[in-house]
Design a binder for these strands. Structure first.
Lengths: 118, 118
DNA sequence: GGGCTATATAACCGCAAGGGCATGGAAGCC
DNA sequence: GGCTTCCATGCCCTTGCGGTTATATAGCCC
């Protein structure tokens, strides 16, 4: 599966995800927040749906859109090696400030910033 | 400062960053790896430069491009609340599979989403 | 200086994506 | 049944972006 960076490049789509982060929402509700027309919102929702980032639940004529954050793990995975670059810097700072008597000379896990274990 | 998602949406630009993750490189070297023309590479490098994701060091006629990962922290910050979501979701799924003897497996889907392939 | 290398910029093109309008289609309500 | 609500889809149109070719600029080497 491709990294959904192109899907996230759209500010409106990121805003949709941010809104769905709080709770599931109806299309009309999202349209109101986005300041777009309803078809425009539906178009973005279609893109998000096909990227697996949102999920829809039917309720009569209404559609409840809810978040599906799993594909974002691809983004997180791509970001991981870069994150090391600034966390290493932070680690160095912490070591300096702590003035640890003995640095962990053992070659164990240098750091695990977050869940990265598939 | 805007989140550089639009900059990262380009596969070639992500590839440039991946290449610069190993070591600084010359434009010609990047061009070779990308399979683009040299002006195309320079264009992408300009976008990355203006986003603060790379930095140039002049060396005679050559330009050494090196990585500047700081703006990626914005991406990481945006991603943070979602990251918490999928780890929670995995935990919930594990608990669910532990307690649930078997899924309903009903006949037919009462909640099938809209047709996907016209 | 002349020529070559390495890179940036300009001009141009093709195409796809975002946005709006109008319409279609399902499902409540009277 | 007819009207309305809520949403998806189908056409436009326009803009912007990625890509290429041609050209400009800077610095080395002979």
């Amino acid at each position: 599966m491709a990294i959904p960076f192109d899907v996230l490049a759209e500010p409106s789509r990121r805003q949709i995800l941010d809104l769905l982060l709080e709770r599931p929402r109806l299309v009309g509700e999202l349209t109101e927040h986005l300041g777009l027309t309803q078809p425009g919102t539906s178009k973005h929702l279609r893109v998000l749906r096909e990227a697996g980032l949102v999920r829809v639940r039917r309720d009569a004529q209404r559609r409840w859109y809810e978040l599906c954050p799993e594909p974002l793990r691809e983004v997180d995975a791509w970001l991981a090696p870069y994150r090391r670059l600034w966390t290493d810097r932070l680690d160095a700072l912490e070591r300096h400030l702590d003035t640890m008597p003995e640095p962990p000379a053992a070659t164990g896990e240098p750091d695990a910033p977050d869940g990265e274990a598939p």
